[in-house]
């Protein structure tokens, strides 16, 4: 069953006098629990595809369909709620709120949703990610790997159905990058979450069950592991 899909998706940018087609008519679907890597050279449009899929950006044309519902029919408020409850994000630059401790960063989406924190679930996530001893520290006191783990925990805090990761290992050294990727794979399986990650690192992409290659805003290859 498709959890999210896009149909003839286009995203155009104005670059000076020229229009740049960052995403050029892509139609693709992702299944529930799938681990997919979107890869391609720099400027191919892979990050833009992820941003449009995750509703961080609006498409120029085409539709994103989540759970059978077109996101074009959602207003800004509904999209915010969708991102908060159903999507998790892991960014290259971690993007933690510097003024909040690790724990507060993790529960931030729960607070925004005005829900009570599910302590058992959050503690499990924290245990899995191995950040129990760093929770009271501000991000500035944490290493890159630790910050990214906090960011993953935050992405999982509201039990999302899809986790979007955009070059999440880009700022990490090789060892930390591998550890974080293993964790992502583990938590997606453990909590049954669809994992869509963007990377230009083929070593990272090879870990995925499905690899989508993009060039000039178009899908040039869509392969599944073992196929």
């Amino acid at each position: 069953m498709n959890i999210i899909e896009c149909v003839d998706l286009r995203k155009e940018y104005l670059s000076g006098e020229n229009i740049v087609n960052a995403v050029d008519g892509i139609t693709v679907a992702f299944e529930q629990g799938e681990f997919c890597a979107i890869t391609g050279p720099s400027g191919s449009g892979k990050s833009t595809l992820l941003h449009v899929l995750s509703s961080l950006e609006n498409p120029t044309s085409g539709d994103v369909i989540y759970n059978g519902k077109k996101l074009s029919g959602y207003n800004d408020n509904q999209l915010s709620v969708l991102r908060r409850r159903r999507f998790g994000f892991v960014f290259q630059a971690y993007n933690l709120v510097q003024e909040l401790t690790g724990y507060e960063n993790i529960v931030l989406p729960v607070m925004l949703d005005k829900k009570k924190v599910d302590e058992a679930y959050i503690n499990k996530v924290i245990d899995v990610l191995g950040i129990g001893d760093r929770l009271e520290h501000l991000p500035s006191a944490l290493s890159g790997g630790q910050q990214q783990r906090i960011a993953i925990a935050r992405a999982l805090a509201n039990k999302p159905s899809i986790l979007f990761a955009d070059e999440h290992t880009g700022n990490l050294d090789g060892k930390s990058g591998r550890e974080v990727l293993s964790l992502l794979k583990y938590v997606s399986k453990e909590f049954g979450i669809t994992l869509i990650l963007v990377t230009h690192d083929l070593n990272v992409a090879e870990q995925a069950e499905r690899i989508i290659s993009i060039e000039d805003g178009k899908i040039v290859r869509d392969t599944k592991a073992g196929v």
């Binding site: 800004d76 408020n77 709620v81 960014f91 709120v97």
Partner: peptide, 14 residues
């Protein structure tokens, strides 16, 4: 910071 909060689902009102 505002962009980050928006990305993780903070509404305009929030």
């Amino acid at each position: 910071q505002i962009g980050l909060l928006r990305a993780v689902g903070t509404t305009k009102r929030q």
